[in-house]
């Protein structure tokens, strides 16, 4: 248990607490806009950025972030080109990201073990700089959502009505993509690029089962996200498991319990 009091674990816990708020919150908007897969795509592309960061000796999260933002713009462009097959753009950019990452991995053989922690997450690798970056991103995301939650709600619920109300829908689409890219790039070190989208989508999936209002679903995603991250990190720390995998499996367990509970309520009533 002494691991829990160690400095690196506490850093991971603070980082986890921060992304446990921002990732599920942003994920709620993405899921409701039927963009669940965008998290996966951006995280896979950011891995290519991380690999490039290692290769050229630049802070990997920053390069990953730039790649994720570029990918989010590329998705928007491709979405327009394929209109009714918008998910195609997500598939193309995702495989492009993985392809680029694999090339960069083979070019820099020495850093493969480091990259592993970005793929599956680690509680040992978070340093002070990472924590400051996560803190900064958390502030940006929370302020943006707090100031514009009603506009984001309207755009999510009915994009046409938002446009007819005079809201700059394009600006909000870009904002959502950029904020998502920010969250993903700072989350991958803890949760792992392959699993980060679960932290975006599963709390939202849970809220669709139990929340009756938008307000409730905002509260639900944050509570579920936080619980899973804290419990997941503790379990991973004590039993030396991959934190990302533990957090995601906990989230899936919560989702299954809610589904069973809801079914029980329905058959019981």
């Amino acid at each position: 248990m002494e691991i829990v009091t160690s400095e690196f674990f506490q850093r991971a816990l603070i980082g986890g607490l921060l992304i446990g708020v921002t990732a599920p919150l942003m994920g709620l908007f993405l899921v409701l806009r039927r963009l669940s897969m965008i998290g996966d795509t951006l995280s896979h592309v950011s891995i290519a950025g991380v690999a490039l960061g290692f290769l050229i000796g630049v802070y990997p999260i920053a390069v990953g972030l730039l790649f994720a933002i570029a990918a989010s713009f590329a998705i928007e462009k491709l979405r327009k080109a394929y209109k009714s097959y918008a998910e195609l753009s997500i598939a193309i950019i995702m495989s492009g990201g993985v392809a680029l990452a694999s090339l960069l991995f083979t070019m820099g053989k020495g850093f493969n073990s480091n990259v592993n922690s970005y793929l599956f997450g680690s509680i040992y690798t978070l340093n002070d700089t990472d924590l400051y970056v996560i803190g900064g991103v958390t502030v940006i995301v929370l302020v943006a959502i707090w100031l514009q939650v009603k506009e984001l709600f309207l755009i999510t619920f009915d994009e046409d009505a938002a446009a007819v109300s005079g809201l700059p829908v394009k600006f909000y689409n870009v904002m959502i993509s950029v904020l998502t890219a920010l969250i993903i790039s700072v989350s991958i070190k803890i949760v792992g690029a392959l699993l980060v989208s679960a932290l975006l989508t599963i709390p939202a999936a849970c809220s669709l089962i139990i929340a009756r209002s938008f307000r409730q679903s905002v509260i639900t995603v944050v509570i579920i996200g936080e619980l899973a991250v804290i419990a997941g990190l503790l379990i991973a720390g004590v039993w030396n498991l991959a934190p990302g995998g533990t957090i995601v499996l906990l989230l899936i367990a919560v989702l299954l319990m809610l589904l069973v509970f809801k079914r029980g309520v329905r058959t019981g009533s």
Partner: peptide
């Protein structure tokens, strides 16, 4: 997940 009240209020946003 939106209530009737939330939807109607969104007409003001």
């Amino acid at each position: 997940p939106a209530t009737v009240r939330e939807v109607v209020l969104s007409g003001l946003y």
